[in-house]
Amino acid sequence: MAGASKAVTDSRANLPFVYRQYSAEQLREVLHKMYLIRRFEEGAEDSYTRGLIHGTMHLSIGQEASAMGICMPLGEDDQITSTHRGHGHCIAKGAEVKRMFAEFFGKTTGYCKGRGGSMHIADVAKGNLGANGIVGGGIPIAVGAALSSKMMKTGKVVVSFFGDGANNEGAFHEALNMAAVWKLPVIFVCENNGYGMSTSTARSTAVKNIADRAAAYSMPGVIVNGNIFSEVAEASYKAVERARAGEGPTLIESKTYRHRGHSKSDRNRYRTKEEIEDWMSNRDPITLFENELREFGFIDDKGIEAIRGAVAQEIADGIEFAKTSPSPEISETGNYVYTEQA
């Protein structure tokens, strides 16, 4: 913890995990990234409304602490698989918003050269093996990546993000079982936002907590408040340590909430205005984290304003970059179906 004197460190002894584990600078960067995720998605939504982005998108607004907390203990070489609600994971793993905007705008400068869009956003260089349009599709792939890590002895840990909907897919169960049997360095992260599209977990899932399912695969099942950054990061930290030590997988259930609908077609008929309002007003992950940072003396109002200003500029620059980037040529539609061979 660079720069923190013994007195400062001691004064943190009773604070939650992240305030003991990470420097003030690192934590301010987390706040910066949480704002970046929020404003990126607001920017994407606005661009969609203006007709600059087509198709659809699944916003993770309200789930920023979950993405940031899980990725906090990961190194750049560690890998993730993500979901259709994957913008936050992508930014948390180190992606640049300008190339994400460019992808959403379908431009050649996007991470997938305009071929993938929101639902397949990836940043392979930073270890994001890709969002996935198939619920549960990335879970066995993450286990395969963890198998590579074990066989090639790279020491990489792989995180598989998925939602509560995916926990009722066969792929989830098959993948967790294999990861446990083979003791692979993988962490299964279920971001339980309460609804698989319109169907609540109460109506879809036989167990009360998805983490309970870990018992069936002899791995630790950990429940965290997904809107409290420190809780998420602490659980992830322990799971990463366990994975790196060769002790096998962990299932983390991060209980959270999406403020927006499932996708752009959602009319929110399955939940009440009061419920949404409650989560937005009282349990917003950015507000909660920001208040803690301020309370514990890691940032002041000026610092917060500086972060908000910097993020606003990054978003504006990113959208401009996307707007002015070139579209792929129609003649290149067939590219990347197969590996180009000399």
Partner: peptide, 18 residues
């Protein structure tokens, strides 16, 4: 295990990562 979907996915993930 007798897990064709998961097994195929593990193979895909391993191929994707080297």
């Amino acid at each position: 295990p007798i897990s064709e979907l998961g097994g195929a996915g593990v193979a895909v993930g391993a191929a994707l990562t080297g």
